[in-house]
Computed example of a mutant assay.
Amino acid sequence: MNGQTNLILRAATSGDVSDITKLVTEAFAQYTPLIGKPPAPALYDYAEIVARGRVTLALAGQAMLGVIYIYPEEEGAMMLDVLAVSEAARGRGIATGLIRAAEDQARAEGARLMRVYTNVAMTGPQALYPKLGYRETHRGESDGYSRIHYEKAL
């Protein structure tokens, strides 16, 4: 992760819920004016999601720099549902490192495909996912959001 030797990835616990909620809310806040409402991940119940045991954190000391949440889907696929990096930590390779760790986890669990979608207003992810080998599969409306869907064979 770009020389982040002191960066550790670990599973989230119930004690992390408040910090996860804050990080995700702040990371996605810039998109609310563009979308006209908060992005879906800013509205999630992170206590429930963390309880599922599928959230990974990127930490430097006690500072939470990033979070990723994946879950299995049908047909041997894994969905990357939430990826957020704190504003102060952007540009340091943390998102890429979290995605690669999630892909490794998915492979270890037998997934053959990783799926992800992003809002059409979010240009950062639209640049990142193709760089990491994701291909756009389709665009469409779901849950009141205009989304771009991607997938990558694992």
Rank of each mutant, 00 (worst) to 15 (best):
residue 145 Y to L: 14
residue 90 R to F: 08
residue 103 E to Q: 14
residue 144 G to Y: 14
residue 142 S to V: 01
residue 135 R to E: 11
residue 125 P to Q: 08
residue 147 R to W: 10
residue 117 Y to T: 04
residue 126 Q to C: 00
residue 129 Y to L: 03
residue 99 I to S: 05
residue 142 S to Y: 12
residue 117 Y to A: 04
residue 107 R to N: 01
residue 90 R to E: 10
residue 122 M to S: 13
residue 139 R to H: 03
residue 137 T to I: 10
residue 140 G to T: 02
residue 86 S to P: 07
residue 116 V to H: 06
residue 141 E to F: 06
residue 98 L to G: 05
residue 128 L to T: 00
residue 105 Q to C: 01
residue 127 A to E: 04
residue 102 A to W: 15
residue 127 A to Y: 13
residue 88 A to K: 08
residue 111 A to W: 12
residue 108 A to D: 11
residue 114 M to A: 06
residue 96 T to K: 14
residue 86 S to M: 03
residue 129 Y to P: 00
residue 93 G to M: 01
residue 129 Y to W: 09
residue 109 E to H: 15
residue 132 L to M: 11
residue 130 P to K: 03
residue 93 G to Q: 00
residue 135 R to D: 06
residue 108 A to F: 04
residue 113 L to D: 14
residue 119 N to H: 14
residue 109 E to M: 15
residue 87 E to S: 15
residue 135 R to C: 08
residue 88 A to T: 10
residue 96 T to M: 09
residue 144 G to W: 05
residue 147 R to H: 10
residue 87 E to G: 10
residue 124 G to E: 13
residue 141 E to D: 13
residue 111 A to F: 14
residue 120 V to F: 01
residue 121 A to L: 09
residue 120 V to R: 02
residue 104 D to A: 11
residue 124 G to W: 11
residue 131 K to Y: 11
residue 97 G to C: 07
residue 111 A to M: 14
residue 110 G to A: 06
residue 131 K to I: 03
residue 102 A to Y: 12
residue 144 G to E: 01
residue 131 K to D: 01
residue 147 R to A: 11
residue 91 G to V: 00
residue 129 Y to S: 02
residue 117 Y to G: 04
residue 106 A to K: 05
residue 109 E to K: 01
residue 115 R to V: 10
residue 100 R to T: 14
residue 125 P to M: 04
residue 92 R to N: 11
residue 143 D to M: 13
residue 122 M to F: 03
residue 148 I to Q: 04
residue 101 A to S: 03
residue 137 T to G: 02
residue 148 I to N: 08
residue 90 R to D: 04
residue 129 Y to I: 02
residue 116 V to M: 09
residue 92 R to S: 06
residue 101 A to M: 00
residue 130 P to Y: 09
residue 87 E to D: 15
residue 125 P to V: 04
residue 135 R to F: 00
residue 143 D to E: 15
residue 118 T to C: 05
residue 141 E to K: 07
residue 124 G to D: 07
residue 95 A to F: 01
residue 147 R to Q: 07
residue 107 R to T: 13
residue 143 D to Y: 14
residue 99 I to Y: 05
residue 90 R to T: 03
residue 94 I to T: 06
residue 116 V to G: 03
